[in-house]
Every structure is written in C-alpha cells, then in structure tokens.
Design a protein around this nucleic acid. Structure first.
Lengths: 353, 353
DNA sequence: TTGAAAGCGCTAACAC
DNA sequence: GTGTTAGCGCTTTCAA
C-alpha cells in the first residue's frame, strides 16, 4: 500500500504562486492583511492545482479540526435502528447538522455513547482525544448528564445541550416542548374538548415536565381542571397501555388524549380499539414526535412535530460561531409545530348528557 | 478560546513509563518486538493517564486516518430525509458500518456527493484531500461511476462498490439481488402462481437487471413463460402505476407481481384497489427493500429485505483489512432474505376456468 | 503586508 | 528489543 501523502500541499501552491507558505495559509483562512492582487494570485494557484487543505494538518498545528461530534445514546439508537420502525431522529439530525456543517466546511460525525455506564467519561474522553472536535452536540439523555457536560466544559470544547435549559456550561437548547404541548392542547380545546388527558414521559427527561407545563398552561387558561388527567409512561408502548387504561377507566374519562411519544400514542389507539372507541369520533388523539409511521396508522395521527433538523442546524451554527463570538447565555428555543391529520375531531356528544 | 492542545500525549506516556516515544507507539499499534514486560509497563501508563492517540497526528505521520467515508447520492439522500417516509437506508448503513468501524477503532463518516454533476471529481477529491480516509464505501449510483472509481483508484484509496460486479479496481459487492429475486419468485411459485409479473428498476442500475435475471431463472426452472410479464419503472410511485396497469391490462394478467421498490409496490397496491382486486386473494404482491413502512400497509407486504447493514459491515471489514491483505478479486455477495407477510397467498381460482 | 522559523503529536526509517 | 532522527502539512509565533 505504501504511505499515502497529500497529492497537493500548501507547498505546491506556494511554489506555484511564488509566495511563502504563510501567505497561502492566510488566503485559505481568509485572514486580513493580504493585498487583493496577492490574494487573487494565490487563489488562482489553489484553483489550478485543486488544492484542499488537510484537516489533520490544520488540526495538528493548533487550528480547527472542522469536526462536529453529535453524541447519541448508544442503546437507544441501536435499538431504533434494529427495530426498523421508521424512527428517523438520526436522519433528521444528519439532515440539519450535516448540511449546515457542509456550508461552513465542517463535517458532522455521529458518536454513540452509553449514558448508563460508569465509563461515560472514558468513552467520551477517548472520542474527544482522538477526534479533537470543534464542537459537540448532546442529545437527551446526555444533555443533562453532569459527567458529560463537566468533561466537555473542562476540555474547553463548545457544546450544545439539546433538551436542556439548565444554566451552566454549554448552549442550552430546546425544541419548544412547552409551546408545542400548549398548541396541541389548544387545538383540542378549539375542537370543544374539555377533558383532555395527558400521558407524559419519564421524570428523567426534563422535556417530560415541560410538556406537562404546556398542557397545564392551556388548560388553566381555559379554566379547565387537570386533576387525574395526567399519567406517566416511559415513552414505550407498554407503559402507554397502562396509562391509557388508567385515564379511560375514570368515571369521567377524557375525550382526548395527548401522548408524549408515538409509541405511547399507538398504545392509546390500541386501548381505544379494545373498548370500541372510535378515533376521532369518540376519542381524539395527538402524538408527539411525528415520526414517519404516524401517517400509516388508521387514522393517520395528528402529531406535534419535533424540529430536530432545524435544531441540529442551529446547534451547528452556534457551535461554529462559538470560537469567535462565544455562546448565547440564554436557552435557544426552536419551536415545533402541530401537524393536523385524522386523529383529532370535535368533542363527542355524550349519550345521556 | 485559545489553542487547544492534546491534554495527554505520547510524550507524557513515554515520560511516565520511562521509555522512548517509539516504544509507546509500538505498544499502541500492537507491533511486535516489544518485550511483554515493557509492553505491560507502557500499557499501565497509558491506562493511568487515560491516553488516547490523536488521529490527526497519526494521519500526519503517514499512518492511518482511521476514517471510512460512506458516499451517498446527495439529492436522493436529502429527498429521502425530507420526505420522512421512513426509508432507513442511511440508518442501516450506519448500523452496520459504524459498529464495525468502532470495533476496529475506526469512525465512519457520511459524505453526500452529487453524481449527476460535472464536479463529482472536484467534490469527492476535496473530501478525500481534507479527510484522507483509509477507505471509501460507494453506494449506487456512485458505485459504477467511472469518474469516481477512477479517482479513488488513482489516489490508491481502497474502496467498496456496493451494487456493482464489474471487474476493475475496488471491492465489488452485491446484496444478492439475483438470489433475492429468485427466492421471491420461488415463494410465489410454491403458492401455485404461474403468471408472475415483474416490475424492474431503471437500466442505469445494474441491480435492476440482476433482479430480472433472478426472476427469469426461477420462471425458467419452473418452465414458465415470462413474455410480456416484465415492465420497467424508475423506482418511483408513478412509474409503478404505469407498469402495474400495463401488466394487469393484459388478456391473461399476472396473479402475482414482484416490484423492485417499495414505492412501486405501493403503486401496485393502488392499482389493485382501483380494479377491485383484493391482495392477496386476487393478486399477490412482493416488494423489494423492506423499508419500515411496508409493515404499515394493508395488508403488510411480503418483501425482500436488502441486507444493507450486513453489507456495510462487511465492506468496512474488507476495507480495513485491505491495508494488509489487499482486496478480494471476486465480487463479495451478501444475501438478503424474504420476509413473508400478508401480501402473498395462494393463486386465485379463476372464474370460468 | 509578507516571510522565516518553530513546533503540533505521531510514526517510518534507521541506528544501536 | 529499544532509542534516535527526521518529517508529515499546516499555523502560530515573531521578525523584516
């Protein structure tokens, strides 16, 4: 195989343009203090020779690595991939992240890290040491893992915490969970629903409670009661079954249910089917996530779309800008939207009312 | 921000262990000619200090970059991501590729390249120059683009051509299209079907014809006629409609149809619905791809599963091994399998027969 | 505004 | 078996 060397290096360009390496470097990095004529001459050589700087060399000499690391939970991600149930969280991150990276000459690299592991630090530390990324994007549940945020802060690497509003190091970002939950609730209120149940996610995720807050906000604004209308699940199907049954077993059951994940919403659908409740005639249902499959259920689900791509894109921009401009000290909010499909309808008229 | 330096370098380890840099390097790279006791001492220092080599530095010194580049078609990939229709081609590549990379201390990086572009070479050349990957995975339609394969061959970078059996540079790999198509056909033959239609992909993809070949093999083996039973589409829904109508408009229409993509299969389903044909009672249908959504149609589709993860994983292994062992000169086949669901059934008994 | 020198962290080549 | 030297391609000093 033989050792591979860069075919065109900064030296070739310098020789071709008849200038020093330094001048070429200045042109590459768009530094000031280069006479336009000089700049043009160097650029011409660059184009002629098809020169592209080696990021390894750039990184070596203490400059940027042009790498952004997107950290995802290993087990969750692999489980999703293997399940092949159409969840496209990773794809949406790539869509938003990669394209924005490309715009700035950066690359995005996905790294799977096991949160529930004693060696989180070792794992992440190794990735950092090996890759020397210029920025890191953390997704839940990593975003609020102090071992991880601490490590990154120590190393002085800019990072974004998606799904976290804590103050502290890094860029706090949310996908507008409170807002999203509120507009979902308002959609149901507009349809005349008064008893709106909510199936929340687990406490470990901050966003679980933000979503509850959005729902309560809307309910309180409409002067409606929320007692007994909130159950918790773990985002999974089975937990959704339990929660849905609890909600619908009440003497005065909800006429609409918002569930904090697609899987839990599927569970609501199943429980409704078991009890002969038609969706949306007897029960309206709204899902969170809006992953591809929600269009293939019967009926297709009205769902809160998580703006994953937009958030990843914004994160990349902020991370790249962090070098020169620092990071915002307020949480950055990227709002989602409600996609109305067939699972929500007017409140049913109750027999005997 | 200040320039970030590696916190623990090979020097620290060398100093801690009281040996030369070279010895540490030898231990890292598992080279022979290091006395076990020495090796142990060095390893102890590595562990103690939590040392991880910088891949930038490794790459700089003419060694490996520990990077594998997976090239995908830009437009197709972005369109899939935006459409959010659950196609998980990229995820499956990551699943197979990333995990196998990780096993060997490599990383996989996705790069989007526009095939139908004059600057393919410039685009890919830039990625190569910037990243200096140790290997490249090409997917259709890049796999058979001579501009791309030529460039890679020139640069001496090992690469895998998925979906290509051409001889020539690089590792030719297939996902067993002929075989897959044959077993799909045989499944239908076992169910008693004799008139089995086939909707192929476009000529630009070699695999289109391999699939036709597999279907014909099975049909010929069963001494059945294939005349007028093969139409071509472009993998898209609309082309599937046209093809399905042509097939079903015949005086003696097929009782089963195999379509070369999920979208074209959906089209078959729709045409069947239009004509009041029940699936699978009146018409059996088999899809290629087995992307997540095929489980959500009515009925769920019997489908040929493309072993994307397994192929990516194998590609990574071969690419990493290429450095020391060279590449296989025969095409590497990774076989898919037929996933039987609800869209295939016994041949219908025709009225009046 | 430009250039020269030093060094980033590591490995290949060679010496011992 | 182990150490020494030189150099990868680039950017950061600093000098002119």
């Amino acid at each position: 195989m033989g050792r591979r060397r860069q075919s065109v290096t900064i030296k070739h360009v310098a020789a071709d343009a008849g200038v020093s390496l330094q001048t070429v470097s200045r042109v590459i990095n768009k530094e000031p203090n280069v006479r336009p004529a000089m700049k043009e001459r160097v650029q011409a050589s660059i184009d002629k020779l098809g020169y592209v700087p080696s990021i390894a060399a750039q990184r070596m000499s203490g400059s940027r690595s042009y790498l952004i690391l997107a950290i995802n939970d290993r087990d969750l991600t692999i489980a999703d991939w293997r399940a092949r149930e159409g969840r496209d969280w990773v794809d949406q991150m790539l869509l938003g992240g990669m394209l924005t990276c490309a715009k700035h000459g950066y690359r995005m690299l996905i790294e799977l890290v096991d949160t529930h592991n004693d060696h989180v630090e070792r794992e992440l530390g190794a990735a950092i040491a090996a890759l020397q990324p210029d920025g890191v994007i953390l997704t839940p549940p990593h975003s609020e893992n102090p071992l991880i945020t601490g490590l990154l802060a120590d190393r002085g690497i800019p990072f974004a915490r998606i799904g976290s509003t804590h103050s502290g190091p890094g860029i706090a970002m949310t996908m507008g969970d409170t807002y999203n939950s509120r507009i979902a609730t308002e959609h149901l209120l507009d349809l005349g629903h008064c008893r709106i149940g909510f199936i929340a996610g687990p406490k470990e995720f901050s966003l679980s409670d933000w979503r509850i807050a959005g729902w309560k906000e809307a309910m309180f604004a409409a002067k409606l009661d929320t007692d007994g209308l909130c159950e918790r699940g773990d985002f999974g199907f089975d937990s959704g079954l339990v929660a849905a049954r609890k909600l619908l077993d009440q003497p005065s059951p909800p006429t609409a249910i918002i569930a904090s994940s697609d899987q839990m919403t599927f569970a609501v659908l199943q429980v409704a089917r078991e009890r002969g409740l038609k969706v949306p005639e007897d029960l309206s249902v709204i899902s969170f996530d809006n992953s591809p499959i929600v269009r293939f259920t019967e009926p297709p689900l009205t769902a809160v779309d998580q703006p994953i791509a937009a958030t990843a894109s914004r994160a990349v921009e902020l991370l790249i800008a962090a070098r020169d401009e620092g990071i915002p000290d307020e949480p950055v909010r990227v709002r989602g939207e409600l996609v109305v499909r067939g699972s929500t309808g007017p409140v049913p008229v109750r027999d005997g009312d």
